[in-house]
Design a protein around this nucleic acid. Structure first.
Lengths: 216, 216
DNA sequence: GAATTAATTGAACGTTCGTTTTATTATCTG
DNA sequence: CAGATAATAAAACGAACGTTCAATTAATTC
């Protein structure tokens, strides 16, 4: 009929966001209907339009907040002034931790870009490029300092990001490997990939080798 | 009204497949309508149902053929009996070449799995797993022979595949780097990542180092 | 050249979609 | 406790969707 007892705008909006991320991750943005989302929240579809003007705007909001969160997480965890190897290690750790904790949101952000209108797509890509630029910068610094051995900075950055983000495709919490183990292995793969000299910089290498051949 | 002059079933089906791959890659499976596809082919939507019983079946056919092609390409290019380093090099080369040549089909195969019914999803995943298993096998052989230095075979295989397949996300033909340059760089990144000793095995290492610091 | 088969059109089916509008009730404010 | 505001339900909108069906014409076969 109308307003229900105990209804709360903030709670409804938060529930809608969370449910939208999960539904979009599972079925895709196009396949998720506003009615389906509303049912998940326990509300009628029309109620959603109090919080999001359009379905596309809902998608955009989710993506923008995801990218903002990624950037903020990195700004809080970056070791300012550290050498490139430590910076790279921090970047890898932050990237993997953030994406594993937000598997579904990452899925949406990576898969549904094509459903954004040009303006909104541009804004998201701008945020993404800025984030990737930080990695390129670290790689370039390391290469110039002779710490890394890199053929092509831009290409290496893309390869690393694809590799790291790919974790969410196969990683499932509570399975064979813990988050710490996965992160550690990706860290050592990254260091080898960029040709970081073992024993210099990150303070991780000894630890890495103790884990060697876990299941080769 | 009815059959058009010059109409040819084989040509129409081939055109529909090609257009479907392009449209799905650009807009996504759900967002592509059968009418849109038909318009691209120059035909009415109903005509498509002569070749594909349902829209989902069209998607499945495209994915299955893509996976078959990948497997066949690998079986034709694998160096039987070669050492693990050469096998890995061949795997990387084949994987990158195949995916770059079929960027759109790869996009579809990777992004639209969730639109398949359980049975068809299982079949596609079975083919994919079999293909990935070949890489794991090469990595294991190399690790056991002491040629590679790998912490976790399964995890490394996934990381490599994500890294390599990721090429299609950013690579555009005719831009800064040629396919040969990209392949070469990925090859050397792969060898470093698996800890292959430079100077052993692939016969690529000298070449690699001549390319070093292309744009670091 | 008649009969058969292949290829397609055009119209229609029922369903679902995103979204809007209006009415109604709960909660808050004074 | 009255008035204002916040939050929702219910119903409806036109449009688009995948798909089916009957009719029609082109090409092939004998």
């Amino acid at each position: 009929m109308a307003r229900t007892t105990g209804s709360d705008g903030e709670r409804t909006e938060a529930a809608a966001r969370k449910a939208a991320v999960d539904l979009m991750a599972r079925y895709g943005y196009e396949a998720m209907s506003m009615r389906q989302l509303a049912a998940e929240v326990g509300v009628q579809a029309a109620a959603l339009y109090r919080y999001f003007p359009t379905k596309e705007d809902l998608l955009f909001t989710l993506m923008r907040d995801h990218m903002r969160g990624l950037r903020e997480a990195w700004e809080h965890s970056r070791p300012a002034g550290a050498d490139p190897a430590r910076q790279l290690a921090a970047y890898v750790r932050n990237h993997i931790a953030f994406h594993i904790e937000r598997r579904h949101a990452t899925h949406v952000s990576n898969m549904e870009l094509r459903s954004l209108s040009p303006d909104k797509l541009t804004e998201i890509l701008r945020m993404r490029t800025a984030y990737e630029k930080e990695l390129r910068s670290i790689l370039r610094d390391g290469a110039e300092a002779g710490i890394f051995s890199i053929e092509d900075t831009g290409l290496t950055a893309m390869a690393l990001i694809q590799m790291m983000t790919g974790v969410i495709v196969w990683f499932r919490p509570g399975e064979r490997l813990s988050i710490a183990e996965v992160t550690q292995t990706y860290l050592s793969m990254t260091m080898r990939l960029v040709g970081a000299n073992i024993g210099i910089g990150t303070g991780e290498e000894r630890h890495v080798h103790e884990h060697a051949q876990l299941r080769a």
